[in-house]
Structure formats: structure tokens, C-alpha cells
């Protein structure tokens, strides 16, 4: 069993996971920004215009993810890697909340979160490139904001291969 990041098992797993992810986004139609916005538009519940689809997507996804986490508790390491990479951050702090607020505004404005934003490249809807370039720039800028907000060095950015 190889634990190399370039091993075929590692890359095949990444491809399989990405493929299922993209197919899931399409099948659930979370690639359609208006469908997401119609979920977020909770004011429409009273009038019957609300679309609860997103809850039916994320609910089962969380359940499967929960089961996978349960399975991994009984494993010392994943199949193709030396260890499970948990997030370095555990604190509920200002960057977490500020980040969630900013993302919430962006998501509410567009109905597009990062997964669908990238999956939409398959369809190249008008103005997607504008959104993507801005998203990448924002993400890049955010790494510096986060560095300033946290004293601790970001392991993720310096971790050797």
C-alpha cells in the first residue's frame, strides 16, 4: 500500500471522489444558482414558493459523511495516505465567524458556493469567468487576512510534502 501523493491509488481516489461530487451536484441541480437562491429565500415559505431541495441534498450527504467518519475511527490511517488530515483549526474564533459572514453574503448574492462555481465550468454560463476570477482572488487575499488575524502559523501553508 503506497502512501505517496503521486501513487495511482491516491489519484484514482481523488478522481473518483471528484467525479461523484460533480455528478451529485448536477443530479441535485445545485449547479443551478436560482435553485439554491430559492432555498435561501425562506420568506417564500408562506406563499408556497420556497424550494426545500438544498436540505434534501445536504441532509443525506451529511449522514453518509457521518458514517464515513465513524468507519475511520476504527482505522489507523486512510488507505492511500499515512494519516487523516484533520483541520488545524479547532477554535471558534473571529476569523471563522467573519469568514462565514462574508461567504454568506456572497452566497446569498449569487446562489453559488465554491463547489458549484467550479462544476459550472462544464456549462460555461455567461459571466462565470468573472465570478471565478473574483473567487480565486478573494481566496488568495484571504490567506493573508487570516495570517494577520491569527498569531499561529498556518501549518497547511508550510507543511512539507
Amino acid at each position: 500500500m503506497s502512501t505517496s501523493y503521486r501513487s495511482s491509488g491516491y489519484l484514482v481516489t481523488a478522481a473518483l471522489s471528484g467525479g461523484l461530487f460533480g455528478l451529485g451536484l448536477y443530479v441535485s441541480q445545485m449547479t443551478d444558482p436560482m435553485k439554491v437562491l430559492r432555498f435561501l429565500d425562506v420568506g417564500a415559505i408562506a406563499s408556497g414558493g420556497w424550494d426545500p431541495s438544498l436540505a434534501f441534498v445536504i441532509g443525506p450527504a451529511i449522514i453518509v459523511s457521518f458514517i464515513a467518519n465513524h468507519v475511520s475511527n476504527g482505522m489507523t490511517a486512510p488507505l492511500f495516505n499515512g494519516r487523516f488530515h484533520l483541520p488545524d483549526f479547532t477554535a471558534i474564533d473571529a476569523p471563522l465567524v467573519l469568514g462565514a459572514v462574508l461567504f454568506g453574503i456572497g452566497w446569498g448574492m449569487s446562489g453559488i458556493c465554491p463547489g458549484p462555481a467550479i462544476a459550472l465550468i462544464a456549462f460555461l454560463p455567461e459571466n462565470l469567468l468573472v465570478f471565478l476570477v473574483a473567487m480565486f482572488a478573494g481566496s488568495f487575499a484571504g490567506t493573508f487576512v487570516l495570517k494577520r488575524m491569527t498569531r499561529r502559523p498556518r501549518h497547511r501553508l508550510t507543511e512539507p510534502v
Binding site: P95, L98, G99, A100, V101, L102, F103, G104, I105, G106, W107, M109, S110, I112, C113, P114, A117, V130, F131, L132, V133, A134, M135, F136, A137, G138, S139, F140, A141, G142, T143, V145, L146, M149
Partner: peptide, 11 residues
Amino acid sequence: AGGLTGLGTSI
């Protein structure tokens, strides 16, 4: 919207 999405998810 894209800028805020990238910035927020990064922070």
C-alpha cells in the same frame, strides 16, 4: 459575490 465567496471561505 465571487470575491466575498473566495475571501470568506478562505478566512
